[in-house]
């Protein structure tokens, strides 16, 4: 930790006293998928305009102050990357860009990969992301140039004794909740499905069938998207089927020809 702080101090010294002008960036693709390159070029378009901060991408390492290493550092790109590093004049700042540059990313366990820019030279700033968005790129450069503070901090949690986690209870039977979530997910994918299912489950909260029916139909009419309407109505049909089954089972039990309840594991 101490060494890390010393390095950050050293970086600030470089910026304040040595590099007093705008900084030029030389970019090396160390065997990445070029997603990072696309985002870097997006960051220097007029929309994000990295030149507002004096950041310019230059074609030679001898003109550059910042070395931007993208990609997981493959065996073949190790020596060219090192040559670029050695060709840069001191002082230089090395930025590891993207998940691959930071740690090898999704290629971390490949036989042909050294695993991140850190494996070949000392890195000053890490910009995670796969790829980092242009805004994240600008934030990373701003952190590198000491214009902005870094936001992310190491987080550590621990528990002394087991603290129970209560399952979420919406007041509806868990198997019905699960059936609705599954159906929504099947119809709309995990992300949209989760949202639609939670919207639907909010509606059936108190369980009064007539009110629930009215609210669901109202919501389906207002949703404005025929797909969402269809999914909501299907979920509602599923819910009605399930609750009707339960009622039928209840009646059977009353008549004395009981279907065994969900119960004891033997």
């Amino acid at each position: 930790m101490k060494a890390g702080e010393a390095r950050i101090e050293d970086l600030k010294q470089k910026l304040r006293h040595v590099i007093k002008r705008s900084v030029y960036v030389y970019r090396v693709d160390c065997g990445g998928c070029n997603g990072c390159e696309i985002e870097i070029f997006a960051a220097i378009t007029p929309v994000y305009d990295a030149e507002r901060f004096g950041i310019k991408v230059v074609p030679s390492p001898r003109h550059a102050d910042i070395l931007l290493l993208t990609g997981p550092v493959t065996r073949a790109m190790r020596v060219p990357a090192l040559r670029a590093y050695q060709a840069m004049p001191d002082p230089k700042i090395v930025v590891a860009y993207g998940a691959c540059g930071c740690s090898g990313g999704i290629f971390h366990d490949s036989y042909a990969v050294w695993g991140g820019a850190r494996s070949i030279c000392p890195v000053d700033v890490y910009i995670p992301g796969c790829p980092p968005t242009p805004a994240a790129t600008l934030h990373g450069f701003a952190v590198a140039l000491d214009l902005l503070q870094q936001k992310i901090r190491r987080q550590e949690h621990a528990e002394k004794a087991t603290t129970p986690v209560a399952p979420e209870d919406a007041g509806i039977r868990p198997d019905i909740v699960r059936a609705i979530q599954r159906e929504a997910r099947r119809l709309a994918g995990y992300w949209q499905g989760k949202q639609i299912a939670s919207r639907y489950l909010e509606l059936i909260g108190d369980g009064d069938p007539v009110a629930v029916d009215r609210r669901v139909k109202e919501m389906a009419r207002q949703s404005g998207d025929p797909r969402v309407t269809e999914i909501l109505l299907r979920l509602h049909r599923l819910y009605l089927e399930r609750t009707e089954d339960d009622e039928r089972r209840g009646e059977d039990e009353r008549r004395g020809q009981g279907v065994p309840a969900v119960g004891e594991v033997r």
Partner: peptide, 27 residues
């Protein structure tokens, strides 16, 4: 349980590798 959720935050740049970790110890 919904313990991990993706947020809108993209400003993850860090000066040390150590700050990019989040750890938890559970009994």
């Amino acid at each position: 349980t919904g313990a991990i959720q993706l947020s809108d935050d993209f400003e993850l740049a860090s000066l040390s590798r150590d700050d990019l970790f989040s750890t938890a110890e559970i009994q």
